[in-house]
Amino acid sequence: METFKSRLQELLSAENLTVPAFAIELGYDNPEKIYRLMRDENNKPSFDILQAISNKFVNWNLNWVVTGKGNKHLTPVTNGSSETIIGSNQPEPTPANSLKLSPKLSATPSPTPKNREYTPSNNNSFVNESSLIYGAKAPQIITINEHGIDNIVYVPVKARAGYLLGNGDQEYISDLPTFRMPGLNHSTYRMFETEGVSMAPTLSDRDRVIGQWVENFDNIRENRIHVVVTRSGVLVKRVLNRLKERGKIYLKSDTISHRHDHPIIEIDPEDIQELWYVNMKVSSDLSEPAEIYERVSELELNQQLMMKKLGIETPRLKQKPSNDV
Rank of each mutant, 00 (worst) to 15 (best):
R7T: 05
Q9Y: 04
N16M: 13
V19E: 13
P20H: 08
P20Y: 05
L26T: 13
E32T: 15
R39N: 14
D48V: 09
N55V: 00
N63A: 08
G68H: 07
G68C: 01
V77A: 06
V77C: 06
N79Y: 07
G80L: 04
I85N: 04
I86Q: 02
G87H: 05
P91H: 08
E92M: 11
P93S: 04
P103D: 01
N122P: 00
V127K: 05
P139E: 07
I142E: 08
G148H: 04
P156F: 14
V157H: 07
Y163T: 08
N167K: 13
Q170C: 06
I173A: 04
S174T: 08
T178R: 14
T188E: 06
E193L: 04
T194L: 07
E195A: 14
R206H: 15
D207T: 12
I220R: 02
I225K: 06
H226C: 02
V227W: 04
L235R: 14
N241F: 09
R242K: 15
K244W: 07
T255G: 06
R259H: 10
P263A: 11
D268Q: 11
Q273T: 02
E274P: 03
K281F: 10
S287L: 11
E288D: 14
I292Y: 06
P315C: 02
P321S: 02
P321C: 01
